[in-house]
Design a protein around this nucleic acid. Sequence first.
DNA 1: CTTATGACTTGCAGCAAGGACG
DNA 2: CGTCCTTGCTGCAAGTCATAAG
Length: 884
Amino acid sequence: MSRKFDDDDGPVTFKRSSVSKSTQSHSEVRKSTSHSNDGRSYRKSSDVPSSNGHNSSSQNGKLVPCAKASAVESSVGISKASTSMVYVRSPRGISKFSSFENKKESLLEKKIPVHVNEENKEDSEDEVENMPLSVRMKMNNINAKKATPIVPKKSSENSDDDIPLSSRLSLSKAPKGQQYGSNASVKQERPSTLSVKRPLDKSDSLHFSGKKSKLSDPAQSINAKQISAKSEPKVEEEDDNDDVPLSQRMNKLPTLVDKSSSLKKLTNVTKVNKGATPSFKKKANFKKSGNKSEQFKSTKLPPSSEDGQKKWTTLVHNGIIFPPPYKPHGIKILYKGKPVTLTPEQEEVATLYAVMLDTDYMQKQKFKENFWTDWKKMLGKNHVIQNLEDCDFTPIYDWCQIEKEKKKQMSSKEKKALREEKLKQEEKYMWAIIDGVKEKVGNFRAEPPALFRGRGEHPKMGKLKRRITPNDVVINIGKDAPIPECPIPGESWKEIRHDNTVTWLAYWNDPINPKLFKYIFLGASSSWKGQSDREKYEKARMLKNYIGNIRAAYTKDFASKDITKQQIAVATYFIDKLALRAGNDKDDDEADTVGCCTLKVENVTAEGNNKLKFDFLGKDSIRYENTVEVLLPVYNAILKFQKGRKMVLLFDIVLLMSPRPLTLNICFSELSDKRPGDQLFDKLDTTILNNHLKELMPNLTAKFFRTFNASFTLDDMLNKETKDGEDVKANILVYQNANKQVAIICNHQRSVSKSHSGQISKLSEKIEEHKALLKELKIDLDRARKGKPPLKGSDGKNKRNLSPEAIEKKIDQTDAKIEKMQSDMMTKEDLKTVALGTSRINYLDPRITVAWCKRHEVPIEKIFSKTLLEKFAWALDVDPDFRF
DNA sequence: CTTATGACTTGCAGCAAGGACG
DNA sequence: CGTCCTTGCTGCAAGTCATAAG
């Protein structure tokens, strides 16, 4: 398990030679990706390019001293001053809503003192920064003024260092300008459909109300085919929603005046929609300038207006749908070999268990135990059934299988009819109207009863997750909207709320863990989600400008005498280099998994030569296994942290003293070595860590390192490895490979499919066949050249007499086939444990992909599926020159 | 502070629909 | 034109992080 770790550069990746799920030990059946062919994955650790190297060192020196120094030294007490400095330089931190102003806007703002910018920069200046020089120059010419103030400032910070001039120049060479549509004209309809569907901005919604149908229709009809029944038509039907008075919608304008959130929206709007009205822009600007004064607390502006956090003005939806009541089947289970009659309720739960008979959960004692506990309650004390072991659920299991089979056997017509029926029932739940804009609802179904399928060794696995009823459900909806009709007669919603500071449409408490909520949100294609997605990536991009200093800061702290600082430094290093998650503390009633801050001493092993071996269960109990070489100070620090000296509490005396009840805690404690199970970073938790990160960059938290590393790596790899003039296929391969590296960095795994090994052997069999054929062909060729007829085929039949040329051609074809099959097999094996999807959905800035596609004429549809395109609608119009 | 809540993102599994293949 | 696979999508579990409450 080699890995490389170049210290300064990018995230370390590793070979996942023995990837495995935690569960593997218990459930060898299933996913243990590990056992079969371990040692030799095709993946090479070395093919990982070190990614984000460039930004690091050069910039260190440049950082404005105050920020950096202060950050470094600051520990809580001192930090105030320093913090303020940081903020001064980058007020943006304050605002979560900074991001989307468009360039013009920021230009207008000249009046605003420089420091305001950081915020505005993001999209405007920031983007500028990342653009090729040529482009930037153009822009400068156009608006000399704006550029000037902005650029200088930024560059002083760092950005310039990030990207070597040379590379910028080279970039600038690339002729751009192709619009997206032009490359992909064929597909154009898709994007357009999408964009039509959901205007991100309010301005649009305004039109909408009036006569949107008119506007959009013509365009649509052109591509009508592809426009599925879903989006467009509906919009129109629901025009009636426009009954939201225009005036109300207009309200937004005024509200702008108030605060943050509205600003956010606006700015976004303008950016997304170039056609935004001037008035909007002005207001936004106005706003902004107000903002600066708030620097420090923008997030907690006094709720001067009711809408400090306002997310919507009008919200209309139809609530959620519930699964149909249980239909008893009457199949009896056997208890000690004898059939037992169960009540419908008992039977329902028995059935939930029966259908899991062929899962790994059956190997888990905890699962059975928890199930039994819950089921026993339903059976009652004196039931014939007294223990689970003597129950035989196979009759129900078999019945279910048969039912499944029946369903499968239905003709496609029947299936279709069934589907349509379902659709019709659900149709009304699928949409919500937010401020006049129709948006898809994400999940509008109440979760059906089930046995809880916790991952890893979850202490609650197997417990009955009882049926959710309307009485469990809280609805959030606009004050003026009709309250959704409760779909179950005789019942009613638990509560109706009108909270416009949140985006959920409904929730209920999770029956398994009542303090958790299950929310109904809008779908991923909604503008709410799109907007926050965009903000996420902008923040990650901003990290690029700070990363050098952050690295310098933690490097300096590796040797700090202040243990807390030292731990923060090392933890940050891990998060940066290994893309570890933050690692919040967990309750005892959850699976025992860890992240960076919660690593236990036994999760990291020093192996000599500055090598550390990480081995722990992370999110979803996915195992993280990686050995990396680290800097000596880090190595030493880990040795020290492992040894520990943690405080052990011996006594705790509490004195209550009168006059004023004063509580005094006197602790008697001693130092002792850490033991397995103890925290490696005993002085840390995610709050401390994130607070520290915020001193280094406004609003920075641990998870952004993952986003940053992932997107940076993709951008970097794509631009290094894409060759000009390659065909689409080759380009896609490049993309896949980059995607794969990201997935490896993030440790995104999947279980090996059951049929994997079978498929591989089938493939290799085929390859052998073709090889044999090849041999034969070669002989034939030889003979043909000598004028002899071909030998009989392996099947004994005579073959046609072919010309040498024809045979040669055949040989070439066969060769190609073999090659393709071999490479297919390689990739298949290679990717068998790697999940590419997660990073594509959550970590890779879609603008990188879109821009790359435009530059290399790869149809975006080859990379993003339909839903992904919808989700990333906000990114589709990105400039081809976009770099992360 | 520290803990509890609340809201929202991330992540894997499983299934169903669609596509490749014989 | 059925079977075998793959792929995309959905479901819901499990994280992160901000903030309220104690």
